[in-house]
């Protein structure tokens, strides 16, 4: 078992998160640094995710590292029935670090137990995607200048949305107040309400996506409401246009409000919001490169000096 891996956001303490934010800031000031000179990073995408892979590979390239890997399991020996363990052990002979995405839940945790080189989880099924959470937290920090005592409203699919679940855990160190806005079928699981209660985090549940809740928010975190999540398609038809943000809903919102979305979006943010200075979802994706540069250096134990 190696300890430098990043498998789940719960592996990060408050200090870890604050340290990574500091490092991400350094990379934002100067992203091109030869810190990975002579290092080989493997990006193993057993499930395709172009967006995440490009973000990680940009981070590695800007650090001067080399990349090996695959972007689709169909082209690898795992499609011929090789075990994950064998693939990971084989790649461990070549690379200094493995960044992996897998369709099975727990794959990254298991990988971190069969090798001594650090594993960074770039998504394991519906379970964890900690680099997404780090870029979300970094985006919150950048737009608000702080992480403490924020009113965070999350909207949409709160039942299956892993980014939301990880955000709750990641932000739990900073005394947030959450507003959970979701249709009945997709409301926040008991498990996460229980998590909030045991960690002393205030939360309010809403089924209506009202201006009232928007107006008290510092962060509005939108997510996709996907048709395949519904057992009752009549229910889907009823709610699919209800949890949509339109520009006219923002007229009385706080000046510091920023709108986040893990992307890609379907229709949950209307196009007329894009030109509103409170829309932050495109820049949010850009922050992903800095957050991932910070995560990679942290996993490899590379010290990043500011400047």
């Amino acid at each position: 078992m190696n300890t430098k891996s990043l498998v789940s956001i719960v592996d990060f303490s408050k200090d870890d998160i604050l340290r990574l934010i500091g490092t991400a800031e350094c990379f934002e000031r100067n992203p091109n640094r030869g810190l990975l000179e002579g290092k080989v990073c493997a990006t193993l995408f057993f499930e395709p995710s172009t967006r995440t892979r490009l973000s990680f590979e940009t981070a590695i390239n800007r650090l001067g590292g080399r990349i090996i890997g695959f972007s689709d399991a169909a082209t690898t020996s795992s499609s011929k029935g090789e075990t994950l363990k064998d693939t990971i052990m084989m790649v461990s002979n070549y690379a200094d670090l493995i960044i992996m995405r897998h369709y099975l839940e727990g794959a990254a945790r298991y990988a971190s137990e069969v090798t001594d080189i650090p594993i960074i989880n770039a998504g394991d099924g519906a379970n964890q995607h900690p680099s997404q959470t780090m870029l979300d937290i970094y985006s919150i920090y950048k737009t608000q200048g702080r992480l403490d005592n924020l009113q965070i409203t999350v909207v949409g699919d709160l039942k299956y949305g892993r980014t939301v679940h990880s955000l709750i855990v990641g932000m739990s160190h900073f005394n947030p107040t959450f507003h959970f806005v979701a249709p009945e079928e997709l409301k926040i699981p008991e498990l996460y309400k229980h998590f909030c209660e045991t960690n002393g985090i205030r939360y309010h549940e809403h089924t209506e996506f009202s201006e009232e809740v928007i107006n008290l928010s510092d962060i509005l975190y939108m997510t996709r409401v996907q048709r395949e999540r519904f057992t009752d398609l009549i229910e889907y038809e009823k709610v699919k246009n209800v949890y949509v943000l339109r520009n006219n809903m923002l007229s009385h919102s706080k000046d510091n409000l920023k709108i986040l979305h893990p992307l890609p979006r379907i229709n949950e943010i209307a196009n007329d919001v894009d030109n509103n200075p409170k829309a932050y979802y495109i820049e949010q994706a850009r922050n992903g490169v800095f957050a991932r540069q910070a995560i990679i250096c942290d996993a490899l134990g590379i010290e990043v000096v500011s400047g």
């Binding site: 075990t83 994950l84 897998h102 099975l104 839940e105 727990g106 298991y110 099924g125």
Partner: peptide
């Protein structure tokens, strides 16, 4: 009980 869990798909 999760069919998508790695433990149900890998000899482990």
């Amino acid at each position: 009980n999760n069919p998508k869990c790695i433990t149900n798909n890998e000899p482990m």
